[in-house]
Amino acid sequence: MSSEQTLIGIPVSVLDLSPILAGGTPSDSFQNTVDLAQQAERWGYRRYWLAEHHNMPAIASSATSVLIGHVAEHTSTIRVGSGGIMLPNHAPLVIAEQFGTLETLFPGRIDLGLGRAPGTDQRTAYALRRHHKQDAQDFPEQLEELRSYFDPSRTSESMKVRAYPGEGLDVPIWLLGSSGFSAELAAREGLPFAFASHFSPNNTLPALEVYRNYFEPSDILEKPYAMVGVNIIAADTDEEAQWLATSLQQQFLNLIRNRLGPLQPPVESMEGRWTEYEKVALQQQLGGSIIGSPETVKDKLKKFLEETKADELIVASQIFDHKARLHSYEILSEIMNA
């Protein structure tokens, strides 16, 4: 077994929201995250990314940079990064210093994925930023400022603020998106692009087309490199996988209803729990999910890859039971090695 396995010829990575479970605590979530990261490393996944969300009682990865360091400390070879840091919530200098510190502590293992959404509601965004002047429309300027802290040649000699640590370090920057905006920006800047197909499946192919059509080669990439996020819930049988998937469905249903809470255990059926309108709305967001037995997952993945032509997959698996979550990723690793 090689140190970096692939699924049907492409690398596969993990997207972890460090879910807080009903009846559990953030401490439990962090233990589960470390355990999953260690197993993912052993199974040959390429990256382990954590996502920034705030004011969400089901997600423990709000202090994303801190948790990245914790995971990197408890693993050895897997790349660890952000999927992503929501840059409008932060001063670019702070992110440069944080990820400069992480790269210094764990050289060659840190990724910096950046998003332009707040990752939360407007009230919480104000609590983070203290004003409304900075928003997603400023993202290109914020990105340029951030990149200049790592590479001062991108700015004028008169720039007096510098990032220590950070300056001169090679921290790979990815742009994340769920629409065409970041796809076009990533293309124009010659950066790798990660698309959130796991909650925006209908925009996947248009955004990837924009990225590939407008891509301009850079010192970083000669050709486009697209990583696509996908929900995968694998189990020994289709029936068990569908049952496990009701935790994810309940979570999104609660988001629609603005009734936030921890990740709930699976239920026998969602019928009677959602209205027809809500069912359709969830299908719009979760319709790209791959749920089933090893055979079903493999077949659906092949079709997904044929459609997206993804260079890499990053897999989210919001499963309530930690052992079942581990088993889902283990099944994927077995498909990877097939």
Score class of each variant (00 low, 15 high):
Ser269Thr: 15
Ser269Arg: 10
Glu271Arg: 10
Trp274Lys: 06
Thr275Cys: 04
Glu276Met: 01
Tyr277Met: 12
Glu278Thr: 00
Glu278Ala: 09
Lys279Gln: 09
Lys279Trp: 05
Val280Ile: 02
Val280Gly: 01
Val280Met: 08
Leu282Ala: 07
Gln283Ser: 02
Gln283Asp: 02
Gln283Gly: 12
Gln284Phe: 09
Leu286Ile: 00
Leu286Gln: 01
Gly287Ile: 01
Gly287Glu: 00
Gly288Phe: 04
Gly288Trp: 00
Ser289His: 02
Ser289Gly: 09
Ser289Tyr: 00
Ser289Pro: 01
Ile290Gly: 03
Ile290Glu: 04
Ser293Pro: 14
Ser293His: 11
Glu295Phe: 05
Glu295His: 07
Thr296Asp: 01
Thr296Cys: 07
Val297Ile: 12
Lys298Cys: 12
Lys298Leu: 06
Lys298Pro: 05
Asp299Val: 13
Asp299Phe: 02
Leu301Glu: 06
Leu301Trp: 05
Lys302Asn: 03
Lys302Gln: 13
Lys302Asp: 00
Lys302Glu: 10
Lys303Arg: 15
Lys303Ile: 06
Phe304Tyr: 15
Phe304His: 13
Glu306Asp: 14
Glu306Met: 07
Glu306Cys: 03
Glu307Thr: 02
Thr308Cys: 14
Lys309Trp: 00
Lys309Phe: 05
Lys309Asp: 09
Lys309Met: 10
Ala310Lys: 08
Glu312Asn: 10
Leu313Tyr: 11
Leu313Ile: 03
Leu313Lys: 07
Val315Cys: 11
Ala316Arg: 01
Ala316Phe: 03
Ala316Trp: 03
Ser317Gly: 14
Ser317Met: 03
Gln318Thr: 07
Gln318Ala: 05
Gln318Met: 13
Gln318Ser: 02
Gln318Phe: 14
Ile319Pro: 14
Phe320Leu: 03
Asp321Pro: 15
His322Leu: 08
His322Thr: 01
Arg325Tyr: 11
Leu326Ile: 04
Leu326Phe: 06
Leu326His: 14
Ser328His: 11
Ser328Thr: 01
Ser328Glu: 13
Tyr329Leu: 05
Tyr329Asp: 10
Glu330Asp: 09
Glu330Arg: 08
Ile331Trp: 02
Leu332Gly: 10
Leu332Thr: 01
Leu332Ser: 09
Ser333Lys: 09
